[in-house]
Amino acid sequence: MRRAILVEAGHWCAIPTCRQYPVDVDHIVDWVKVRRHEFDNLIALCPRSIVGLATGLCARHHPTRRLGGSVASVTPSSC
Rank of each mutant, 00 (worst) to 15 (best):
H62Y: 14
F39A: 05
I50K: 09
L6Q: 04
S73M: 12
R36L: 07
L45A: 05
V34S: 02
H37M: 02
V71C: 15
L53G: 12
V23T: 11
R48W: 04
E8K: 01
T17L: 00
C79H: 05
I15W: 00
P16A: 10
C79P: 13
T17M: 01
Q20N: 13
I28N: 07
G56W: 01
H37N: 13
P63S: 10
D26P: 00
C13E: 10
P22E: 04
T64S: 09
D24L: 07
I28D: 05
A72N: 15
T17V: 05
V23G: 03
I50L: 02
R19G: 04
T75E: 14
P47G: 06
L42N: 00
V29D: 08
H11E: 15
R35V: 08
H61E: 05
H62V: 14
R60Y: 09
V29C: 00
H11G: 07
S49R: 06
V71S: 15
E38Q: 14
G52H: 01
R48K: 13
L57T: 15
A4M: 13
A14M: 07
R65V: 09
N41V: 01
A14T: 12
S49F: 06
I28M: 08
Q20V: 14
A14N: 07
D30F: 06
N41Q: 01
P22T: 14
V23Q: 00
P16I: 10
W31V: 12
V51S: 03
H37L: 01
I43P: 03
V32E: 15
T75S: 14
G10K: 00
R48A: 13
P76K: 05
I28C: 11
D24I: 13
I50S: 07
I50C: 04
G10E: 02
P16Q: 03
C13A: 02
V51L: 06
V25N: 06
A9Y: 00
V29A: 03
V71R: 09
G52Q: 04
T75I: 11
G68S: 00
C46L: 03
V32F: 10
D30M: 08
V71D: 15
G56T: 02
L45W: 01
E38M: 10
R60W: 12
M1A: 11
P63N: 06
A54T: 13
D30P: 11
C79V: 08
R65P: 02
